[in-house]
Amino acid sequence: MKLRTVLAATAATVAISGAVQAESYRIGITQNNVGVDSYQTTYEKAFIAAAEANPNVEVVVLDGGGDVARQIAQMEDLIQQAVDAIIIWPTNGEAVIPAVRKAHKAGIPVVVTNSNIADAGFDFVASFSGPDNITQGARSAEIMCDKFKEMGIEDEAQIVHITGQPGYTTAIERAKGFDDRLPEVCPNVTVLETQPGDWNREKSQKVMEAFLVKYDDIDGVYAGDDNMGVGALNAAKAAGRDGIIFVGATNFAVGYEAMERGEYWGSIYQSPVDDAEAALKTALDVLNGEDVPFLNYFDTPKITQDNMGDFTKPVF
C-alpha cells in the first residue's frame, strides 16, 4: 500500500493503491481554514493519516481558507468530479447551504464535520460528525460558576466573553450554550460585554486589552477556544491585572500549559485527531448503508487545574 500526495495551491489529493477491493470510495473534504490555528492543521494531518490507513479510500483534501466563496467553488468542483461523498467543515453555516443542497440533489451524501450548518440545511445532510458545541458552552459556564462559588464571588462577579468567528456555527453554538447556562447556575454573575476574537490569539489579545481599559473590575473571561483565551490571558498579564479566572473550550496545548502554570483555570477537552477520524468513519458508514445518527457527537469532557492530570497534553 502506498500513499501518493499531490499538493497544489488549494488542494491535496491522497490516493491509496493496493489490492483490488470489493468496495472503494472517493471522498472529498473541504475544510474551514487549515492555517488559522493548530487544531485545524492537526485535523488535516489526522484525516490524511486515517485515509492512508484505509485501502478502500481515496480522498480529495481541500481548504476553504476561511473564504465562503472559495469553499462554495470547492463544493461545486467536488460535485463535478462526482465523488462518492463530501465532507464539509463550513466556513459559514448559512452561506454554504445552497452548495450542500446542490450536492444532495446530485445524489452525493454530505457529512458536516466539526461545526454544523444552519438548521435550514439539515434536510440535505446525511450526518453531522463532531462535538456538541452547545453542551461545550454550557460546561464552560459550569466550570466558571463552580470556581466563582469556590471563591465566594458568585453573587458579584463580572465577566467578559470573547467569541469565535461571526457566522460560524461553532462560535454561535458555544456562545449560546454559555449564555443560556450561566444564568441558570450563577444568576447574579454579570456579563459586561461580548466581542469576537475570530479564533485568533492576537486579535483576542487586542479585544482583551480594550476590555481592560474599559472595565476596572473583571473577574472572569470566557473564550470560545483556548487559543483566544490565552490571547486574553497575555493581555491581562501585560497589564498587571491578576486574579482573573480564564475559561475556554477546545483545550489547546497553550491552554494546557497555562493551566499547569496556574494562570488559566479550565476548558473543554477536544481532540482534532478524534474529530478527523470520526468524520471519515461517518462518511464511510453512510456510504456502506450503516445506521448513522444525524447528530453523531463524540464526548468532550471538562478539564480544569483540579483534574488535568487525568488528561494527556494536547498535541496541537
Rank of each mutant, 00 (worst) to 15 (best):
K102P: 00
V110K: 02
N114H: 10
W89D: 15
H104S: 15
A118W: 03
V110H: 03
E94K: 15
V83C: 00
E94W: 06
K105V: 14
A106T: 03
P90C: 07
P90D: 03
H104W: 14
T113Q: 12
A82T: 12
D84R: 09
T91R: 13
A99K: 07
I108W: 01
I87V: 15
K105M: 12
K102R: 14
D84S: 07
I108S: 00
T91I: 13
V111F: 12
A103P: 10
A82S: 14
H104R: 05
D123G: 14
V100K: 05
A82M: 08
N116E: 14
W89F: 12
A103S: 11
A103W: 08
I117E: 01
V83D: 00
P90H: 04
D119W: 06
R101Y: 09
I108P: 01
F124L: 02
K105N: 13
V96H: 03
A85M: 04
G93Y: 01
K102S: 02
A106C: 03
A103Y: 09
V83A: 00
D84N: 13
K105T: 14
P98C: 07
D84Q: 08
G107R: 06
I108H: 01
N92G: 07
G121N: 04
I97C: 12
V96T: 11
N92D: 15
V100D: 02
A106S: 13
V100S: 03
V125M: 09
I86Y: 04
D119H: 08
A99H: 10
P109D: 12
W89Q: 14
G107K: 10
W89P: 07
A99Y: 04
V110I: 12
I97P: 10
P90A: 07
V96S: 03
N92Y: 06
I117F: 05
F124A: 11
W89E: 14
P90K: 05
I87L: 15
N116Q: 12
F122L: 12
G93C: 04
N114I: 11
F124I: 02
T113H: 11
F124N: 04
A120S: 11
V112G: 06
A120T: 04
